[in-house]
Design a protein around this nucleic acid. Structure first.
Lengths: 360, 360
DNA sequence: GATCGATCTGGGAGCGCTCTCATGTACCGA
DNA sequence: TCGGTACATGAGAGCGCTCCCAGATCGATC
């Protein structure tokens, strides 16, 4: 109770850093000129510029961001919103890639990355308040369960926003960066069909995520095109354990399974684990295709055929797009869709299948 | 060139958010009273408090951080400095855990996490300038290469700092959180000895990192205590590929190798990969102990014996410690060392070794 | 030689907040 | 009734910066 009024804490100890006033005095110019010199030097004489530059070095001057942003209304920072429980962030290289990519996009800018990990419920309200509070100039939001309404809410606040991954509602004018997940699923189906597999099943992602839904739709389409029957679908949660469980479901439904498409590499890992533990060999008995192409399967003694998802590149693009939209809100809101590509490796090595069936 | 003077960008569009003045007017009190009500309500009458609270909700008021921090000299944000090339961050769950943990520690605070990933050279100067510029209230620095002098430099600036991982120079008065790496290495050695292995080698981490050095020293000490000869040491870079290469070196030096301690789980994975590709079975021919205990080895069909490193907990502790030090710079700078524990799993299953040798 | 840009400069206001200080109000005991 | 002591309040200054605007300087032009 007694500390209540001190909740903002005491100011830091050390000696105060030089102000613009100090800088101007040291350079022998006015505060205004010093300010101009710092911010790009338009209408500043070469001598004044040089004097200011020298003084900056001499004093070790750094502009006070708070003061600057108080008047410019800009904070020189953007938020990366990761609306997932933390445990998931830990294990999924996807988020690491996103962080890396966004950071990379900010290189050369003076922008900083503020990380907002927001869990369920109340926490997300807090996050939302922070975003609306003008504490950042823009936001990149990752992921999109059907339930969360980030896209919609942010669209209304007018805060420049870029999504990574297609939102359920694309009519909000919020640009997004995504992979062609549909095509990825389709490629997986066609590939498995092309190596002669016909009893195919898929471990899809959570049904409330667009990426998962798109991959599944593409998969079905691919099967249709190859003249194969739809086959069983089991949903996992993108984790290894989830994949392992889902694989058991598939086998229960179709014991003669000879090909599986898992909507993430992690789930593919789980699938392989289950298959092996049940005595099926990969790829001889069952061929497996994953999704993501992060190198995690290296230690597995089996290279995984997978659909590439250039996560870092996508995040870089999202970051750059956001910066552009902050500078110029009129920038196009066209989504950026990366093409999906299949990387064929050992887990679908072209061994002849046990028996052939109608490739139509 | 023409845009030079506009580098700060234009102010955001939308309607301006309510100010404290607006809030005070709406609540029928003065700005001062409104401010007090917001900051803990000491010396504010219940009526005034209630009026302000209501107005906050009604207006959707959020304090302007810039204005606040301009006067308080506090920014309500801390930096997490990760001085590693980004590629490494991507693959190593260690950093994901750190981010998660620090974030967790900030929960309940109004502090935000600013992520500073700084690469070699010039970039680290920029980062340093940012940290000294008073843009954050404190910093958590992950790292520990001998070359970087973060600890020293930051200690001099007076910015509250907490390190994750012991720095080479512990005499700077900068607190750190670390695992008892020495004991971890020692436990690995004693365990391998205890299951009867005697031709032991280790894949150590980079020689310029304290964690790697400590684990190696502990390992040597453990071997001495078990009456075993030192055995070969090969250095890896904490990655799977590095572990795989290092394992080849060990085998070249000691073909009869029957136990390996790898200083990270990722390297242990590489070691196992190499061993298997050369026809050695794990654990029958060679027992393998890892370090970190992150669940990545699950998909491997082999559970890894490893030394636990509660990374998330450690990061939480570091975060809390930093917050405490920001609030009260007099807080103890005692390091926090987590005990190392060995988790025995299948990769060192107690099969009888091929032949016994002096367990002294 | 006077006029007109074009270029550069400094004064000053004000961003939204916190915090000091002086003042106002209520209630105690004398 | 009066001084004293709490507590509650509002006025005002000022944090460090940007940016508007008015003034100064300098050629070039009429």
């Amino acid at each position: 109770m007694k500390e209540q009024t001190r909740q903002l804490g005491r100011p830091p100890a050390g000696r105060p850093s030089p102000t613009l006033e100090d800088l101007a005095t040291a350079a022998g110019v006015s505060r205004s000129t010093a300010s101009r010199a710092i911010n790009g030097g338009l209408k500043v004489s070469p001598q004044a510029q040089a004097a200011v530059d020298a003084a900056i070095v001499a004093l070790g001057y750094t502009p006070n961001r708070a003061a600057r942003s108080l008047v410019t209304k800009r904070t020189a920072s953007i938020a990366l919103v990761i609306p997932e429980p933390d445990a998931r962030v830990m294990m999924d290289p996807f988020f690491a890639a996103v962080i890396t990519g966004v950071n990379e996009a900010l290189r050369g800018t003076d922008m900083q990355l503020v990380l907002l990990m927001s869990r369920a419920g109340d926490d997300s309200a807090r996050t939302m308040r922070y975003l609306r509070g003008g504490h950042v100039d823009g936001a990149i939001v990752v992921s999109h369960h059907r339930a969360d309404d980030w896209a919609e809410t942010l669209a209304r606040t007018g805060l420049p926003t870029v999504l990574i991954g297609r939102p359920w509602d694309t009519g909000l004018g919020v640009p997004f960066v995504d992979l062609d997940n549909f095509e990825g699923g389709r490629l997986a189906a066609r590939h498995l069909a092309s190596i002669g597999r016909s009893n195919l099943g898929t471990v899809a992602g959570p049904a409330d995520m667009t990426a998962a839904a798109d991959r599944l739709e593409g998969w079905k389409q691919g099967l249709r095109e190859a003249g194969l029957r739809p086959g069983p679908v089991s949903h996992g949660d993108f984790t290894t354990a989830g994949g392992a469980d889902a694989a058991r479901n598939l086998l229960a439904e179709v014991p003669e399974l000879d090909g599986v498409f898992a909507a993430s590499d992690l789930m593919a890992l789980g699938v392989i684990e289950t298959l092996r533990s049940l005595g099926r060999e990969v790829p001889r008995d069952v061929a497996v295709v994953g999704f993501d192409n992060h190198g995690l399967t290296a230690g597995n003694g089996l290279d995984l055929t997978t659909v590439t998802q250039p996560m870092v590149d996508m995040a870089v693009t999202a970051g750059r797009l956001l910066v552009r939209r902050i500078e110029d809100p009129e920038t196009s809101t066209e989504p950026v869709i990366y093409p999906a590509e299949l990387v064929v490796r050992a887990s679908t090595a072209g061994l002849p299948p046990k028996r052939r069936e109608g490739s139509s």
